[in-house]
């Protein structure tokens, strides 16, 4: 698939996509458009600082991405931690020096070449890495790298947008849940809006849950528990 088509496909036409769907689009686009790339996956920097493998294009990628986390070494982790593109042109030789545990396994699976490109948010912070796998050194040649870099910057933009929408969706949903829970407390205990909110906040501190989590519990609890069926 031509690169410009693959990039355009990063932008869904039917509506905003979730973060997971965007990650899958990025991986599918990379494999379809970047020459000699046989597989791809995303190492995703979670909020707690851990790195998880997401949207692997096939079982080998899934295994190799997960293995890097288990062994705590490999191109994905280097790219996420260092913030620079990491390339490996031969896992059976030079790769072994850098990742003595990971590289031999990759080579054994026929993955001799890897290129891991960090994905950035708008504040230039690394949010993950797109890792391309293949068997041919041209994947990390000059042409291959410049195409991959361009693709990765488009992917970063798409991912940033998906994150922003996801946070706004969450914020809206949380706020609505809090409103609904206030209504439940107002009805049950004859409280005012402010009193109901104060009670929610107090409960949330008491049980050490976020206010919206307490609200959701109340909403579930109210269903079917009313005075009339």
């Amino acid at each position: 698939m031509p690169l410009h088509l693959a990039v355009r496909r990063l932008i869904p036409t039917r509506g905003p996509e979730s973060v997971d769907e965007t990650l899958a689009l990025i991986v599918a686009g990379a494999v379809a458009s970047l020459p000699l790339v046989t597989g791809a996956g995303i190492s995703y920097l979670e909020r707690d600082g851990t790195v998880s493998s997401r949207a692997p294009s096939d079982a080998v990628v899934a295994e190799l991405d997960a293995l890097q986390n288990t062994l705590d070494q490999g191109p994905c982790l280097d790219a996420v931690r260092g913030g620079d593109t990491v390339t490996a042109s031969d896992m059976s030789t030079s790769g072994v020096d850098r990742w003595p545990l990971f590289a031999p396994v990759a080579a054994q699976r026929g993955v001799l070449v890897a290129c891991s490109l960090p994905l950035f948010n708008r504040h230039d912070a690394v949010v993950g890495a797109l890792t391309l796998y293949g068997g041919h050194p041209e994947v990390v040649g000059e042409d291959g790298l410049s195409r991959a870099a361009m693709f990765a910057s488009c992917a970063s933009l798409a991912l940033h947008g998906a994150h922003r929408v996801a946070r706004m969706t969450t914020a809206l949903a949380n706020r609505d849940a809090i409103g609904q829970a206030k209504g439940i407390l107002m009805e049950r205990y004859g409280l005012s809006d402010d009193e109901a909110f104060a009670r929610l906040v107090a409960s949330s501190q008491h049980v050490n849950l976020k206010v919206h989590a307490v609200a959701r519990w109340l909403i579930d609890d109210a269903r079917g528990a009313g005075s009339r069926p």
Partner: peptide
């Protein structure tokens, strides 16, 4: 949303 919650509790 408050009214939805009240109806639910009711």
């Amino acid at each position: 949303h408050i009214a939805s919650g009240m109806l639910s509790a009711r």
